[in-house]
């Protein structure tokens, strides 16, 4: 295009063509990204759901036959008149995994929110060395989950671990605990590592919300002599509620799909096996590809329902579009 002088009379038509030109360009700019997302997200998801209705095995990906809902639930009446139910929905291992996942997600997110709030309040205060503290809490976040799992597995080691050593010398326990191996404590071990690793993330998200609370509110409350605890519950908490809600949903989704930490820290422990772990195990290790696909489809459905309910009931604004 040349920079010809624009006649005022023509401005309208030119505007329109410019807008059209921009929309056409926008389409071509979006197309590669959309294509990539369809390839790696939409298509594989649909295929997973499809597999869950077949009897596909890992060794024969294309030989699966349509078997309807049999992977989820099937009913067969024996000649003796006895009715047998089969499928994921009556599989105690699956329900154990669901229970483990839900227990893990609720406990970890609850504790992380409380601890994150405390850390965020500390970081929101002005004191010497604040930058140092913020740097320190970023370290657990930066360490790969697998590495944290290994580091903690060593610290929680029953014979040579430092945690048992500390607890013994303080007198909290009187004999060494096999944290990751024992079914009673395996879940505590997983929770410990997860809380250590993700509280910083929570704290940073809450801190961002806290920093948007105007400082003069605190000044005014102080002048009026209002108890700081009351200020926190009556003023601060309602003001940071949107940030808190978003942080909780992100963490909750992460916790409900947890895989790597459990897989590495407590391998093959029924006390911690989550939905993701059991699905992959069936899919890849046990050659029950379609059965695992059915379980991962269920996990997806559970998450989708949960997110919709949360956004709907909590009136969470995720769009960040409020400006326009």
């Amino acid at each position: 295009m040349t920079a010809a002088p624009i006649a005022p009379r023509k401005a309208g038509t030119r505007e329109l063509s410019l807008q059209q030109q921009r929309q056409r360009a926008a389409f071509w700019f979006l197309a590669p990204m959309l294509f990539a997302l369809i390839c790696v997200a939409a298509w594989p998801l649909l295929r997973t759901i499809w597999f869950s209705f077949t009897d596909t095995t890992l060794s024969n990906l294309y030989g699966g036959k349509w078997i309807g809902l049999d992977n989820y639930l099937s009913m067969r009446t024996l000649s003796s008149g006895k009715v047998i139910y089969r499928g994921t929905l009556v599989d105690p291992a699956w329900w154990n995994a669901v229970w483990n996942t839900v227990r893990f997600a609720i406990t970890s997110v609850l504790i992380e929110t409380v601890l994150g709030l405390i850390v965020a309040l500390v970081l929101n205060a002005e004191f010497k060395g604040r930058g140092l503290v913020r740097a320190a809490i970023l370290i657990p976040w930066a360490i790969p989950t697998i590495v944290s799992a290994k580091m903690w597995a060593w610290m929680l080691n029953d014979q040579f671990g430092i945690i048992n050593d500390i607890l013994l010398s303080v007198g909290l326990i009187d004999q060494k605990i096999a944290w990751t191996a024992s079914t009673d404590t395996a879940m505590y071990a997983v929770l410990m590592v997860d809380i250590w690793k993700t509280t910083p993330f929570m704290a940073l998200l809450i801190l961002a919300g806290l920093q948007m609370v105007p400082r003069d509110i605190y000044e005014a409350a102080k002048l009026d002599g209002i108890n700081p605890v009351k200020v926190f519950f009556k003023v601060t908490l309602p003001l940071i509620r949107p940030a808190l809600m978003v942080a909780v949903i992100f963490r909750m989704l992460d916790a409900l799909r947890v895989f790597d930490l459990v897989y590495v820290l407590t391998p093959n422990s029924a006390a911690t096996k989550t939905m993701s772990v059991i699905s992959r195990e069936n899919m890849i290790d046990f050659d029950k590809f379609a059965y695992g696909a059915a379980q991962s489809t269920l996990l997806f459905a559970i998450l989708a329902v949960f997110v919709s309910l949360y956004i709907w009931l909590g009136r969470v604004d995720l769009s960040g579009d409020s400006k326009q």
């Binding site: 979006l30 997302l37 390839c39 790696v40 997200a41 298509w43 594989p44 998801l45 649909l46 295929r47 997973t48 597999f51 990906l61 989704l253 409900l256 799909r257 895989f259 939905m275 993701s276 699905s279 992959r280 899919m283 590809f289 695992g292 696909a293 991962s296 489809t297 996990l299 997806f300 998450l303 997110v307 995720l318 769009s319 579009d321």
Partner: peptide, 24 residues
């Protein structure tokens, strides 16, 4: 709608696409 879809994809549980991606 497109923005919300993109956000939704970022929340996908990875296990839900594992079987399909494996085939792909």
């Amino acid at each position: 709608l497109l923005l919300m879809t993109i956000l939704a994809v970022s929340m996908f549980p990875q296990i839900a696409v594992l079987a399909g991606l494996f085939e792909l």
